[in-house]
Amino acid sequence: MKNYDLFIGVDVSKLKLDITGIDQDNAIHLKHCVIRNDAKEIKKYFRKMLKNQGKPMIVGFENTGVYSALIAFVLQELGIDYCQLPSLEISRSRGISRGKNDKIDALKIAQYLLSHRFKISLSTVTEIHLTEMRLLYTHREKIIKSISQYEKEFENTDFLPREIQKEILKSTNSILKSLHANLKKIEDRLGVILKEHAAMEKNFKLITSIPGIGKQTALYLMIVTKNFTAFKEARQVACYAGVAPFPYQSGSSINGRTKVNNLADKKLKSLLNMCALSANKYDIELKEYFQRKVGEGKNKMLVLNNIRNKLLARVFAVINRQEPYVNLRKYAA
């Protein structure tokens, strides 16, 4: 980590950015100001700052999705070090506090940067094709949810006269036809993006060579790991997905059971659960493992969670080796 002289906290909202800067002595070096959350305005402000300050600086702001995308792109373009921080991490670092406003939040982010300067990792803008994949995947999920909702309309056909539902069913069929057409376009575009990037296409094929892991799980894993550059090992992804167990113990009075944490990517956890169920059904090795552990008296969900972790370990194994999964049981037999 570089030795920074200026720590700048930015509170991001839809229309504006609140900015405050402090030095290494926690003294206000950059008075609070407000600028529009607009690429031109952000670029103008930080260019002026680079010209006037001339000091090593780092900028920190909460990851607010699309609202924080502009400042991230501008800072990377200008070559300014920055860090996107989880909102929960910032709020918990504040300790006991009463009330809040954007000015105070910007200062707290700057103070967080100062106090954690030896621990924080610099952020980079996600590659354009990965950002597009994330947006397409999210849109695909919305369409699938809409299809499921509209298909429920047909449940009423057995209980009400068809004349009453005629117009509703006609409209529903039209909407479903359009949704399915758009779903196919999105899936085709996702396939095109993979083909345009050889490294991603290869990783996709490697992941789907593992029994139990399907195309959608493989795509989502590549999106959240930024094509396996954001995480170094399977245990980190297991923690991110909420399938890594943690102890709950303190002194002699508190000795709770080891369990997974609720802070997780619930979508990834759900996908891994479906993969574990599929692998338990079709992968002989994991099926025997499940039956053996349950026979020993282990909780079924605990064993299933172990299978989720085993699948993640297999994913990182094939990615690191750059070779497809090999079922050794075939050769052992």
Results as ranks from 00 to 15, higher is better:
154 F>G: 02
155 E>G: 01
157 T>W: 06
158 D>P: 01
161 P>Q: 10
161 P>M: 13
162 R>T: 15
164 I>G: 08
165 Q>L: 15
165 Q>C: 11
166 K>N: 09
166 K>L: 09
171 S>N: 14
173 N>T: 09
174 S>T: 08
174 S>Q: 10
175 I>H: 07
176 L>M: 02
178 S>D: 07
181 A>Q: 15
184 K>C: 05
184 K>L: 10
186 I>Q: 04
187 E>I: 14
190 L>T: 03
194 L>H: 08
196 E>I: 07
200 M>R: 12
202 K>N: 14
207 I>K: 04
207 I>M: 05
208 T>F: 08
208 T>L: 02
213 I>A: 12
215 K>I: 12
217 T>D: 00
217 T>C: 06
220 Y>I: 03
220 Y>L: 05
220 Y>S: 03
222 M>K: 01
223 I>D: 03
224 V>Y: 02
227 N>C: 08
227 N>A: 10
228 F>M: 02
229 T>W: 02
230 A>Y: 07
231 F>A: 02
233 E>Q: 12
235 R>H: 09
236 Q>G: 08
237 V>A: 02
239 C>H: 11
240 Y>G: 05
241 A>F: 03
241 A>C: 04
247 P>E: 15
248 Y>Q: 13
250 S>T: 08
250 S>G: 07
252 S>F: 06
254 I>E: 07
255 N>G: 12
257 R>Q: 11
262 N>A: 13
264 A>K: 08
267 K>A: 05
268 L>E: 00
270 S>L: 03
270 S>M: 07
273 N>W: 11
273 N>A: 08
275 C>W: 02
275 C>V: 01
278 S>G: 11
280 N>I: 11
282 Y>Q: 07
282 Y>A: 08
284 I>Q: 10
285 E>P: 00
285 E>W: 02
286 L>M: 12
288 E>T: 11
288 E>D: 14
289 Y>W: 02
289 Y>Q: 02
289 Y>P: 00
289 Y>I: 00
291 Q>K: 13
293 K>R: 14
293 K>C: 12
293 K>W: 05
293 K>F: 14
293 K>D: 13
